[in-house]
């Protein structure tokens, strides 16, 4: 493979970093050249976070250039919007519907856009696939498995250049034992979930 880029976005504390590590580790297991970019420290505290997973022989650095992501995975709608300039026109945006309201919105200083506006804006860049990842995560054992639900969705859509069993091995390798079953369940739920597709 020459280059495959995944942008994983969400909110600090929702496990985006761990999920990205699972994908990067799985890609390495399959013998691919991998770069994963992450942000630590102050940027991590409840703020917008994004991680990049880059796979392929042409990949050198951790940053995905503008318009070069094959996949944009977001656990949160507004965070997809914030990073949508990375997606390529032939790419796919997969976004969980669950909204996490920023403090500025609660304080009445900003507005959270409607679902319709977000989805329309996203669809201007690439095909959008959306579903209720949060409910599936809750059913699997907690909101923190939402990332794994998203990974499952990518597998279900046949968009991930990594085998499902390699991803499952990476889950077992990276997460503590007590979280294995719930994350594998979350992966299956995401894979089999009914999804909506929106194109412009």
């Amino acid at each position: 493979m020459k280059e495959f880029n995944i942008m994983f976005t969400g909110v600090g504390g929702t496990g985006v970093l761990t999920a990205a590590r699972i994908l990067a580790s799985a890609a390495l297991t399959e013998g691919q050249n991998v770069r994963m970019g992450e942000i630590h420290g102050m940027a991590q505290r409840g703020g917008a976070v994004n991680c990049t997973i880059r796979i392929g022989e042409n990949v050198h650095g951790p940053i995905i250039p503008t318009g070069k992501a094959d996949l944009l995975l977001s656990v949160e709608p507004v965070e997809a919007l914030r990073n949508v300039n990375r997606i390529m026109p032939s790419g796919t945006i997969i976004v969980g519907e669950y909204q996490i309201t920023p403090t500025g919105v609660l304080l009445g200083r900003y507005e959270y856009p409607t679902d319709e506006v977000i989805l329309q804006d996203l669809a201007k860049f690439a095909k959008v696939i959306t579903f209720d990842a949060a409910t599936l995560a809750q059913e699997s054992g907690g909101i923190l498995t939402m990332n794994t639900v998203l990974i499952g969705a990518v597998i279900g859509l046949n968009l991930l250049p990594i085998k499902e069993e390699t991803v499952i091995s990476a889950i077992k390798e990276i997460l503590p034992n007590r979280y294995h079953a719930m994350n594998i369940d979350a992966l299956k739920k995401g894979k089999n979930a009914q999804k909506k597709t929106i194109t412009s």
């Binding site: 991590q44 409840g46 917008a48 507004v78 919007l81 914030r82 920023p102 403090t103 500025g104 977000i118």
Partner: peptide
């Protein structure tokens, strides 16, 4: 359209 989400306590 995206409201800012700075790091918070």
């Amino acid at each position: 359209e995206a409201p800012p989400r700075p790091p918070i306590l």
